[in-house]
Structures are given as structure tokens and as C-alpha cells.
Computed example of a mutant assay.
Amino acid sequence: MRWTSLSAAGAVALLVSACSAAEAAAPLTRTPDGRALEVTFADEFDSFRPYRNGQGVWRTTFRDGRDDHDDDFNLRTLKWNKELQLYVDPEMRGHRGRHGDGDRDAREQALGLNPFRVKDGVLEITADRVPAQLADRLGGFGYTSGLITTQPSHSQTYGYFEMRAKLPRGKGVWPAFWLLPLDLSWPPEIDVMESVGDPGKVYVTLHSNAVKAEGTEIPVSPGDFHTYAVAWTRENVVWFVDGREVKRMATPADMHKPMYMLANIALGGDWAGAPDATTPFPARLQIDFIRAYRFAP
């Protein structure tokens, strides 16, 4: 994939615009370019609400949460990205293929892995090495991490979507905030924000069968909270960082259907590369809020 860079003037504006988590703004009434908005979804993370048994907000696996081949952990990693982590949650059980019938009780027992923690109104998603005592129950994966999606609880066609977050650093660490189609097709995909190892650089792009994807590299101040957003209409897709427009594209022909939001930390892959001895673990993505809006009449 080819990347372009933001202008020097835009970079300076972004570097000085960061603020602390305590200074988070109220939900918007207008986009940065003036369009009226109405809130359709907001989580300020005063608590974490996993989606279970038809209730809650956040699914912690991909797609619709059903898999007939859970021994392969198909819903807990993206193999075609060559990712090295499993997305875990407190209800996750071990790899059934590693146990005989005599280990049925162990097989049915949850592993006790929880990458999600809420503190002072901020959700922390943690990526870390697999605990040595659980290595034989996690299918050979070396890392655990967390994924949240609104696939069961919220989706919409067009709108303004934003996440305020502080990004982790380290080789092979790949946090993201993105949109996928509710009908579980791919593409399209909107990447509101991705970062690869360096929290001083983020990338914005989209994927489509109708147009060639070209991403843009945006410099930001590392170690600070920033707000990453996209405005998606029938005509255009426009990205913002801290209220400043950083990229604009015509909406592709295949991007006119409901989409839902995802946030996660991946590890490894062809783009990010594998973590190494310099990668600080645990790596934490800190999310102050995630919100969605529709354009008001």
C-alpha cells in the first residue's frame, strides 16, 4: 500500500492540539466543517459492557460471534493479516484439540484472561505475551489482546464516527479504529485510524473493490490523547484528527450500506512486523470514548 504524508503546517497543528483525558469534550453538535449532528451511539466507558446473551454493547470476537470450528480460533485473529495474537475475553476457553477426554473439566473451564479494564472513565485494552501456563491451550499463539465491536449493538449507513484514545508503542504493535459492513462482506472497510509501532504516526485509508486504496500518514504528538474521526456521506469520506481535516476521498460505489465500529490492538503481520525484545509489554490502548452520530436534517 502507498502512503502520503500530511503537510508540515497540518502536522504542527496536530502536535499542539492534544489534551489530557480529563479535558475530554462533550458530544458534538456539529462536525468540524459545520454539519449538524445528532448522537446515535456513545460510550464514555464509565464501565465495560460486553455483549452477552442478547444484552450489552461490545462483542469481543469478530463477525457474528458464532463459529463451528472454534478449535481454530477463527473469530479471534485475522490469519490473512498474519497476526500473532488471539483476541481473548473472560469467557474464553482453551483449545479443545490439545486435550483428551480425561481433561474435559479443564477444557470447559474459562481461562481467566481479561484484556479489558476501566479506570477513571477510560477503557484500557491490553496486549501481552501468553502466560506460560496457558501456552498449550491457546493453539500455539504467542500473544493475547482485545477487540471490541458494535456489530451486535449499533450500525448505520453514513454518519460521523469518533474515538478519543492514547496509543501504545513498540515494534509489532498495531492499534486501530475502523468500520466494517454489517452484512459481513469485505470490502468495503474504513480505517479511521491505524498505528504501527510508533504512536507519533497514524494512518487513515479505506478499502474498496471500486477504487484503489491509498493511505495517508498523519503525525501526532505521542503519549497524548487524540480524537480520530471520519465523516462518511453518500458523496465523500473525510478524516479528521483533533478536529482538523487530514484527508478527503469520494465515497466508493460499494460503500453505501450499514457499517459497525471496531477497536483493537493487533500484533505482528506483514505491515507491523513481529514484536521483538524491544517491544514493551504489556501494551495498552487507552480509549476515553467512542461515539457515532447521524447528520441532522
Rank of each mutant, 00 (worst) to 15 (best):
L78A: 11
W232T: 08
R244M: 09
V130K: 08
D288H: 01
G34M: 08
E245F: 01
T29V: 13
T31F: 03
A292W: 05
P168R: 04
G65T: 08
R96V: 14
E91D: 15
P152M: 09
R66A: 12
H154G: 04
E235V: 07
R248F: 02
S153N: 11
L123V: 11
L86C: 01
D105Y: 07
A250Q: 14
D103N: 12
Q156T: 06
D288G: 13
P222H: 06
L180A: 11
G197S: 05
Y203V: 05
W232R: 09
R169C: 10
T29G: 09
R244S: 04
A229D: 03
F141W: 13
D183Q: 11
V39K: 13
D120V: 01
Q55R: 15
D67Y: 08
L123P: 07
W232F: 05
R52S: 10
M92G: 05
A42L: 14
V118R: 06
A26K: 12
T150Y: 03
A127D: 03
R107S: 14
A25H: 04
D46M: 03
R284T: 14
I287F: 04
H95L: 09
H95G: 01
G34F: 02
A263C: 11
D46A: 14
E91N: 13
D103G: 11
R76D: 15
D103V: 00
G139F: 09
D254I: 05
V237E: 03
D120L: 01
M193D: 03
F240G: 04
R117G: 00
G97I: 12
G65C: 06
P252E: 00
G140M: 10
D191K: 08
H207V: 00
V230P: 06
P258N: 09
P50N: 12
Y158W: 06
E124A: 15
S195H: 08
W80L: 08
G223V: 00
Y160K: 07
W3A: 04
T278I: 02
D43E: 15
D64A: 12
A253M: 08
I287C: 10
I125S: 06
L75T: 01
W3P: 02
R52G: 00
Y203D: 00
S195F: 06
W232S: 07
V57T: 15
D46C: 01
A22V: 12
G112I: 02
P199C: 08
F45N: 13
L111G: 07
G65W: 05
S5L: 13
G112R: 04
R63E: 14
S208Q: 06
V196C: 08
L179D: 00
I190H: 04
A13T: 10
Y160G: 07
V230C: 10
P181V: 04
V57Q: 11
A42K: 05
K166W: 03
K212M: 08
R49D: 13
E189R: 03
A24G: 10
V88F: 09
D276K: 07
A25I: 06
Q133N: 14
L206N: 09
T40C: 13
R30I: 00
L167W: 07
